[in-house]
Amino acid sequence: MNKRVPSNKRYQPTDYEHAANCATHALWIIPSLLGSSLLHFQSEDQWERVSAWVYGAGLSSLFTVSTLFHTVAWKKSHLRDVEQCFHMCDRMVIYFFIAASYAPWLNLRELGPWASHMRWLVWVMALSGTTYVFFFHERYKIVELICYTVMGLFPASVILYMPEQAGLCELLLGGTFYCLGMVFFKSDGIVPFAHAIWHLFVALGAAVHYYAIWKYLYAPPANPVRTSR
């Protein structure tokens, strides 16, 4: 690994770290596309199909955009502007991935009167986060981390109190992987391959959440009763 850089500069990975950054998310692009298709084919109504594709789009976009950014960053040469654009997209897509990950639960599970507003509030938060990245990308890194954390945890206040609790343990486990991974997200220059390790925690969290969505919202033997819409 290279030396740690000041907070106002971006860490420059070694070639080995670049390769690991690319591989640790590229490997999940095809599985995410196949998994999204599976949810679509197991959907029984329009809301399930819409939720499946919204979630699938967020999941596959996360791994695809991340892989493209890290590939360009590795082979950039004179592509400074392109790299910057992909870096912004890499940060923006995280907000939409978080919103998309909550979408199946918020759309397909029974929610209380106030909690139902979270269905659109998560997208307002995603749009706000994207706007922040557009104007203040890499300027206040700690603020970005706080925004990701708040958006990841705030909708859980609704999910945790749903009348149907099946899948809650998997949701908590996946969230734990994300939270543990953030330690490595901020450890470039301290821990070798820190960003690649962060990618692995993201993949683990996403895999656990996908399993929960498939098992408790889509798989025929475990389909819960849907709320009237």
Rank of each mutant, 00 (worst) to 15 (best):
A126Q: 02
Y95R: 07
S36T: 15
I94K: 06
P192T: 01
V183L: 13
L108H: 08
L59M: 10
W120A: 14
F96A: 14
A194Q: 04
S77T: 13
F134R: 01
E48F: 07
Y132K: 03
T130G: 15
T14M: 09
W120Q: 14
P221R: 10
A219S: 09
Y140K: 09
Y210I: 00
N21M: 04
V93R: 08
M125P: 09
S7L: 12
H87T: 01
K141A: 12
N2L: 05
F201Y: 10
P13M: 08
V158L: 01
V202W: 00
R10E: 06
G175S: 00
M162H: 04
A52C: 06
T149E: 03
D90N: 08
L39K: 13
C179N: 05
A196S: 11
A57L: 15
A57S: 15
F185I: 08
S37T: 11
Q84K: 13
F69H: 15
L145I: 15
H40P: 02
P192I: 03
S51I: 02
G189T: 01
L111K: 02
H18W: 06
Q46G: 08
Q84G: 10
K9W: 06
Y102R: 05
G129K: 05
S128V: 10
Y218G: 02
S157I: 08
K76P: 14
R119F: 06
A19N: 10
L79M: 14
A103K: 00
W74M: 13
S66V: 04
L34T: 03
S128E: 00
L127G: 15
Y102T: 12
F41W: 10
A166F: 00
P13R: 03
F96M: 14
T227D: 14
G35C: 10
K215R: 14
T227H: 15
T227P: 05
P224M: 00
F96V: 12
I94P: 07
S228R: 04
V5D: 03
Y210M: 07
V54G: 06
I94Q: 09
T149W: 00
R229N: 14
N8D: 15
S228K: 03
A207I: 04
P224D: 01
G35V: 07
K141M: 02
V93I: 14
D15C: 09
F154L: 15
Y95L: 09
Y16F: 10
K3D: 14
L145A: 15
K75M: 07
F69I: 03
Y148I: 05
V150A: 06
L59G: 05
V65M: 08
F135Y: 12
W74I: 04
A115F: 07
P155H: 08
V208F: 01
E110C: 11
H25A: 09
A57K: 04
A206C: 11
P31M: 01
T149K: 04
S128W: 01
W114E: 11
P221V: 04
F134V: 11
N107M: 13
Y55A: 02
C179F: 12
R10N: 08
Y102D: 00
G35P: 02
L171R: 11
F97G: 11
Y132G: 09
S128D: 01
L145W: 02
W105E: 12
V124D: 02
L168C: 00
A156G: 09
V5I: 06
I30W: 03
V202C: 09
A115T: 00
E144P: 08
H70A: 05
L204R: 09
Y102A: 13
E17D: 13
K76D: 14
S187G: 00
R4M: 13
A26D: 07
T227I: 11
H199G: 11
F184T: 12
A166S: 12
